Simulated scan of single mutants.
Amino acid sequence: MSALLEVSGVSVSFDGFRAINNLSFSIGPTELRAIIGPNGAGKTTFMDIVTGKTRPDSGTVTWGEKGISLLKLSEAEIARAGVGRKFQRPTVFEDQTVAENLTLALKSPRGPLAALWFHLTGAGRQRVEELAAKVGLTDHLSRKAGELAHGQKQWLEIAMLLAQEPKLLLVDEPAAGMTLAERELTTAMLVDLAKSHAVVVVEHDMDFVRRLNCRVTVLHEGSVLAEGSLDHVTADPQVIEVYLGRG
């Protein structure tokens, strides 16, 4: 299987500190991957580079079958190419309903103001209902997003990302602040999404990572320290020393 995303030999420094150090990473078109590592390992910077927020000093970031260089695209162009990112804190329009949030997110040429007054019919309404069903919010379409529980807001934001029809989802610490029941539902959701998307999950919660049951990449000082199953990487003496042993 050819890679959907290929990061090769990427390095970037900030004021003399090398945040990413000759990093190479790839993910297939339908794959679930967890990224773990201590604070300062380069996890956020990695996502910043892939989404165009940060430009590396060296290396390449290629995308899709045609090997398009993401480093030549703007953040907006990268998003339109199919890279979606969900930050740790949910960013939804709290005064709008779930349905209105999803309507705003639908991939279309409409501007945001026009979308607020747009009444869905036909295919658009069906798409909103499909997105809500995918994240368990079918019964909450008429509720304001601000009334939702924390976990439900996280799911709404995932649905809003899906509305943009991404090929790759970068998801930052989805388990943070969730109840056990919400975590279990989120696990099932991400596993299901990986059947049709590439999904990269940055997470500190080892129990959550274990439930994902996927390949794990451990970052340390901006490089890949270990890679494989969770059991494999957590048995690695270097991983124990620099990450797991700190707790």
Score class of each variant (00 low, 15 high):
Lys86Leu: 05
Gln88Asn: 06
Gln88Met: 04
Gln88Ser: 06
Arg89Val: 14
Arg89Trp: 10
Arg89Gln: 12
Arg89Lys: 15
Pro90Asp: 05
Pro90Gly: 05
Thr91Trp: 05
Thr91Asn: 13
Val92Tyr: 06
Val92Asp: 10
Val92Trp: 09
Phe93Gln: 07
Phe93Val: 07
Glu94Ser: 12
Asp95His: 15
Asp95Thr: 13
Gln96Trp: 10
Gln96Glu: 10
Thr97His: 00
Thr97Gly: 08
Val98His: 04
Ala99Lys: 06
Glu100Thr: 09
Glu100Pro: 04
Glu100Arg: 10
Asn101Tyr: 01
Thr103Val: 12
Thr103Pro: 05
Leu104Glu: 12
Leu104Asp: 12
Leu104Ser: 11
Ala105Gly: 09
Ala105Leu: 02
Ala105Pro: 05
Ala105Thr: 02
Lys107Asn: 13
Lys107Gly: 09
Ser108His: 07
Ser108Met: 05
Arg110Ser: 11
Arg110Asp: 13
Gly111Leu: 15
Gly111Cys: 12
Pro112Lys: 05
Pro112Gly: 10
Leu113Met: 15
Phe118Ser: 11
Phe118Asp: 10
His119Asn: 15
His119Ser: 13
Thr121Phe: 03
Gly122Met: 09
Gly122Glu: 01
Gly122Leu: 07
Ala123Met: 04
Ala123Gly: 06
Gly124Val: 10
Gly124Tyr: 14
Arg125Trp: 13
Gln126Ser: 15
Gln126Asn: 13
Arg127Gly: 00
Arg127Leu: 00
Val128His: 00
Val128Phe: 00
Glu129Asp: 04
Glu130Ile: 04
Glu130Pro: 04
Glu130Trp: 05
Glu130Cys: 08
Leu131Ser: 03
Leu131Met: 04
Ala132Val: 00
Lys134Glu: 08
Val135Leu: 04
Val135Asn: 00
Val135Trp: 06
Leu137Trp: 07
Leu137Met: 05
Thr138Met: 10
Asp139Tyr: 03
His140Pro: 08
His140Val: 06
His140Thr: 05
His140Ile: 01
Leu141Cys: 09
Leu141Val: 11
Leu141Asp: 04
Ser142Asp: 14
Ser142Lys: 14
Arg143Lys: 14
Arg143Glu: 15
Arg143Thr: 06
Lys144Ala: 14
Gly146Val: 07
Glu147Phe: 10
Glu147Gly: 02
Glu147Ala: 11
Leu148Val: 01
Leu148Ile: 05
Ala149Tyr: 14
Ala149Gly: 13
Ala149Glu: 07
His150Asn: 07
His150Cys: 06
Gly151Gln: 01
Gln152Arg: 00
Lys153Phe: 06
Lys153Leu: 08
Lys153Asp: 04
Gln154Gly: 05
Gln154Lys: 12
Gln154Glu: 06
